[in-house]
């Protein structure tokens, strides 16, 4: 992430933000409402164009990668306000998550050639593994829209993991969860990171979650980076305390 800037008309959503996300780490991204956290995610998944700066992933620039190839490049994400395929089943949602890891086309699929049958079997198997990992087996055939919010959040996480990302972007995974669920989620994120050897960039307002599981924390305010360091260092940072308590938000 190098000197990234984004503006919407007159609003500067991100201003010259730079930081690194070391492979295998969990990096927490915090900041008051409107700080630009989601905007930063949207730059990473190419939903927004960066006006300036560059984003390097695995040594090459992301800014040349078309939107639909970001997942294939190894970046998976969840959305702040859930972006599930609501009329589809839980299993189908997760199977769509593997789209970037499969490649058969219209003709082969219409004829259901053996390569398609094999690919589908592999997709199904991977997706079932994720169902088990996130304890979604009992609702596999349920329509996503019919499920409670917390379950939907797990479906979205499973869908993001289905593409076997190297970097996982989580936008407020704890919002709407109760205290106990947040604890479980924190454990789960660490677990998944260890097991699947992921790098995680975590946007979260839930401070105890961020501070507990992050190796490194970056704080934004009004589109600028105001602090960076270990959770302990950042917590003591005067500008951050100012941003959260000083009425600036």
């Amino acid at each position: 992430m190098q000197n990234v800037g984004v503006r919407f008309g007159g609003i500067v959503a991100l201003d010259d933000v730079s930081f690194d996300v070391p492979a295998g780490s969990i990096v927490g991204l915090i900041g008051p409402n409107g700080a630009g956290k989601t905007t930063l995610f949207n730059c990473l998944s190419r939903l927004y164009e960066c006006g300036s700066g560059d984003i390097l992933f695995d040594g090459s620039s992301l800014l040349q990668v078309p939107r639909h190839l970001v997942a294939g490049a190894g970046i998976g994400r969840t959305f702040q306000n859930l972006a599930l395929f609501r009329t589809m089943t839980v299993l189908d949602n997760i199977m769509v998550g593997r789209h970037s890891r499969t490649g058969t086309g219209f003709l082969f699929n219409s004829l259901r050639l053996p390569v398609v049958v094999r690919e589908e079997a592999a997709t199904l198997e991977k997706s079932q593994t994720l169902l088990r990992l996130l304890e979604l087996e009992s609702v596999a055939q349920a329509r996503v829209a019919d499920l409670p919010f917390g379950t939907q959040k797990r479906v979205e996480l499973a869908r993001a993991l289905a593409s076997e990302p190297k970097l996982l972007l989580l936008d407020e995974p704890a919002s709407g969860l109760n205290h106990e669920e947040v604890g479980v989620l924190g454990q789960l994120i660490r677990d998944v990171r260890d097991r699947l050897k992921l790098t995680v960039l975590l946007v979260e307002h839930h401070m105890s979650l961020v501070m507990n599981i992050s190796d490194h924390v970056v704080a934004l305010n009004f589109g600028r980076k105001i602090a960076e360091g270990t959770p302990a260092e950042v917590q003591r940072h005067p500008e951050l305390i100012q941003a959260y308590l000083g009425g600036a938000a």
Partner: peptide, 18 residues
């Protein structure tokens, strides 16, 4: 599945690599 994903949420579909 990709067709239905686009129908339900085209932004998410593209983020999944469609």
């Amino acid at each position: 599945r990709a067709m239905m994903a686009i129908r339900d949420n085209h932004v998410a579909a593209e983020a999944m690599g469609v």
